[in-house]
Computed example of a mutant assay.
Amino acid sequence: MPKSLGKDSTCSIARSLEVLGDRWTLLILREALISGATRFHEFRDALGVAPNLLAQRLTFLIDEGLLARRTYQETGARPRDEYVLTETGRSLNLVIAALSDWGRTRRPRPEGTSPAFAIEDSGTPVRLAFVTEDGNQVAAEQLVARRTADHELVDH
């Protein structure tokens, strides 16, 4: 599944798409992040994806470090695997939230649904925003982006 994308495969977006560029991959992650799915049948039932394709994508997500395989056993049943998000996988909340926000505002549907994000402990609602170093919010439409070497960017 992973392949080099385009002429500039050093680009962080291309590197991300090497892992996340498949729609089933993002939908599996959506189910894990938003619905709390961990079991094969939960993903299969929610997505309607073919079992062989689902197995392939789950293995890929494990190999990429987004999911971890954990064995569980219900009383009287054989041991089975479940698929739990790693810290790297959970960090994709930002990506899922951005896709959701874009889809809700730019591709609205009367019957549409969107996830609402909140702080786990308090339930306080949160939303995506671009914020300057001094805390001012900036609308996405006001921004420009320029190629910058990763080592020159400072994470806050």
Rank of each mutant, 00 (worst) to 15 (best):
A37L: 08
A37F: 06
T38M: 13
T38N: 12
T38R: 14
R39Q: 15
R39K: 14
R39M: 15
R39N: 13
H41I: 14
H41E: 15
H41W: 14
E42A: 13
F43T: 10
R44C: 12
R44M: 13
D45E: 15
L47I: 10
L47E: 07
L47M: 12
L47F: 04
G48S: 12
G48A: 11
V49Q: 13
A50T: 13
N52F: 15
L53A: 14
R57F: 03
L58D: 07
F60C: 08
F60T: 07
F60N: 07
L61H: 06
I62S: 02
D63Q: 04
D63G: 03
E64Y: 00
E64C: 05
E64P: 04
E64A: 11
G65F: 01
G65H: 01
G65C: 04
L66E: 03
L66R: 02
L67P: 00
L67S: 02
L67N: 03
A68H: 03
R69S: 14
R69K: 13
R70W: 05
R70I: 09
T71V: 13
Y72S: 08
Y72M: 08
Q73Y: 09
E74L: 12
E74Q: 13
E74P: 03
G76N: 08
A77R: 05
A77N: 07
A77Y: 04
R78F: 09
R78C: 02
P79K: 13
P79M: 12
R80M: 07
D81L: 05
V84F: 01
L85P: 05
L85W: 00
L85I: 00
E87N: 09
T88Y: 08
T88C: 07
G89P: 06
G89V: 04
G89T: 04
L92I: 06
